[in-house]
Each structure stands twice: as structure tokens, then as C-alpha cells.
Nucleic acid binder design. Sequence first.
DNA 1: CGCGACGTTGATTTGCCTCAACGATTGTGG
DNA 2: CCACAATCGTTGAGGCAAATCAACGTCGCG
Lengths: 192, 192
Amino acid sequence: MESNLLLSSIEKHIRLSDDDKEFIQQLFKERKIRKRQYLLQEGDICKYTAFVKKGCLRSYCVDKNGVEHVFQFATEGWWMGDIQSFNQQTPGILNIDALEDSELLLISKSDVDSLYARIPAYERFSRIILENAFISHQERIMQSICFSAAERYEHFSKKYPQLIQRLPQTQIASYLGLTPEFFSKLRKQMLK
Amino acid sequence: MESNLLLSSIEKHIRLSDDDKEFIQQLFKERKIRKRQYLLQEGDICKYTAFVKKGCLRSYCVDKNGVEHVFQFATEGWWMGDIQSFNQQTPGILNIDALEDSELLLISKSDVDSLYARIPAYERFSRIILENAFISHQERIMQSICFSAAERYEHFSKKYPQLIQRLPQTQIASYLGLTPEFFSKLRKQMLK
DNA sequence: CGCGACGTTGATTTGCCTCAACGATTGTGG
DNA sequence: CCACAATCGTTGAGGCAAATCAACGTCGCG
């Protein structure tokens, strides 16, 4: 039997019967998307939450000068979506696109609701995932408030060494709230 | 019968039987704390999540130069805690103190767990509260990334007009990531 | 091959900070 | 109830981290 990233990552937190697994599998739709392809554009309603099976996504917003600012990355085993737009089913301000050719599993809001109805423990799973996401956002806010650019970069490299390898510098700079130029100078300086 | 802010704010999201209500009530402990008094200090384990019945709390962290940075405010009907420290029961880096004399309802982690066990819908309630908190953090991150100081201030005044009245400027400045001096100059400039 | 994305480097500018000084208000102990 | 300290907000001069603008080299890809 093939390993199943989605189910195993759910089963890290709650127990599933074979029926549950079947039910879950059938609600998620496979979707491949190419590098640079959009999954969601500003102004759209976020119809699906994505689970990344393979590849890498990013979400970002665009400021009034047209500059992109990365909000989040998602590689294998991570979730991606615009939770605000998804929950309220109203137009959002996030863009989501692929940094690599990717394979996703998509689920709609009504299907998430039927998960909650049929598998009550799925509420628990969502809560735990949210708690973790919340904690990492909390950390990010504290850093942008308390830390210098160099400190933020250092922390990022320690926490996500694979991403440092995998992503273009431009994207990391944007995530850290820096221009690519300054980020380049910063790296050079830190090598000493 | 007196109005009960805690129960009514839970019942906005899930249904409670009279038994449930009784059970909930008895798990939360009343606590009054004075202005400037700590509820939590850096390095402590966050033993309680607080629901604010009356008054106003703030959480903040202190950077390596000793400067305080406000992370969150909580007035009547809001929840406050260090979710990371609370969940993992490990020492945290947040401080929490009172900006006004306040009345709180405190609940411990084990009591939250017994809520989940006895009232499964409470998982749902937590999930929803977390989703909302997550969304507002998301918004805050986007702003610190995309917006100038003036724009952030403008947004804050629109979203929390009561807080503008209620809180000292120093605290608002800190929440917005500015020094009190610069914040003062900014306000003067924006009045034109 | 040629174009577009990516990374680097240097010169200049700017948004916000630091430091210092000074009124106004609040609160507190004598 | 006053006196004094502490907190809070304001203003100005000077400084620094990071942005902007511009130019150039490299690589991968259609």
C-alpha cells in the first residue's frame, strides 16, 4: 500500500477508522499545478483549502506600489489557503501561486463542514492545526517587532534550513520583510 | 438573573445545556487584578487562560535593549494568554499585565481538557475562537509588512475606536511598532 | 541565441529611532 | 490637602537601518 501523507498527518493527532479514512479521501480532490500558476488571486473567494502533497506554494499580498509581500510558504505536508476568505466565503486579498510544479489535495468549505459533522474528532484536528499555525504567527509577529533583519534571517535559517536551500532568495527576502538588494548585502556581511 | 458575559459569548457559537453551563461556571475561577499587576511574567509557565470580565489586559515581550513591545490587548469579552506556553506547559517569553483594575475568569489547561472531554462542542468553540484570532494575526502581519506607520494607525483607529479613547498613547504606539515620540509626531501631522 | 528571472554592488534618500529637554497630568505619602 | 515624584505626551536635533534607484553579470529556458 502506498504511503498517504494526508491521512498520516491527520492520524498524528486523532484516531481514524477505516470508514473515516475512506470518507476523508473521497472529499479531497487531486490537483496538479505548474510553477507560477495561480491557485487563488486577490479578489477571488477562496473556495478550497489545499494540502500540499508535493511541491511548494506561497501566499502573498501586493501593496499599493505593486510590491509583493510573501505571507507564507507551504511545502509537503503543509496546509495553504486564505482562512479569512474561506471561512466567510467573501473575496480576499491574498494571492496564492506555485513556486514549483506541485500536487495538491483540495477540499471545499462545505466538505470541511461535512467532515466536522461526520467525524467529530476532526474538530479537534482542526483546532490543533490552528493552534500550531497561530503559535507560529505569534512568533513571527514578535520577531518583526523585536528583532533586526539579521536576527530574523538567522532565526529563519535555523528553523527552516531546507527552505533556505530550496527557495529563491527573492522570496525569502520578501518573507522576512526585506528588499532583495538589502537581503543580498545582509548575507554577504553575515558570512564574515 | 445577572447577565453572564462568559456563557453568552460561548453560546454565540455553540449550544449549552443547563448542566454544561453549570459545569463551565465551576471550572473558571474569579480573580481580580490591579492596574500594573502581572498575570504572567516572562519565564513563567502560563497556567491559566484568562477571560476578561471587566477591565483591560495587555501582553508584551521585552527586547534585548529592554524595550517593551505590546503583542495584544484584551478588554471585556476577550481572551488572553500565552497559547504557546499554555499548550506545551513550558516557560514562555510573554508578559501579561493589567492596564486597568480588572476582573478575570481563569481556567487551567487540565480544566480545558476536561471541558473538551465532557462537552465535545467546546472543541468547536475553541476552533472558532482560534480561527478568529488567527485571522486577526494574519491581518496584523500583512499590515506590518505592507503598510506604513500612518496607514497602520489609521486602520487601528477605524477598527478599535474605543481603544483609542481608552488606552494611553504609549501603549498604542508600542502595539503599532512605533516609539511614543514618533507616534506623537505622526498624530500631529495627521490632524491636518 | 536572446530574453527574462535572479543575484550583486554602489550611491543616494528616507522613515523612523535615539537622545535630551520640557510642560501637563496623575497619584501618593507625609 | 499639599508637595513631590512618576507617568505621559510633546518638540527638536541628529543618526542609522533599510529602501530606492540604477547598472551590470549570470544563469536557465523557450
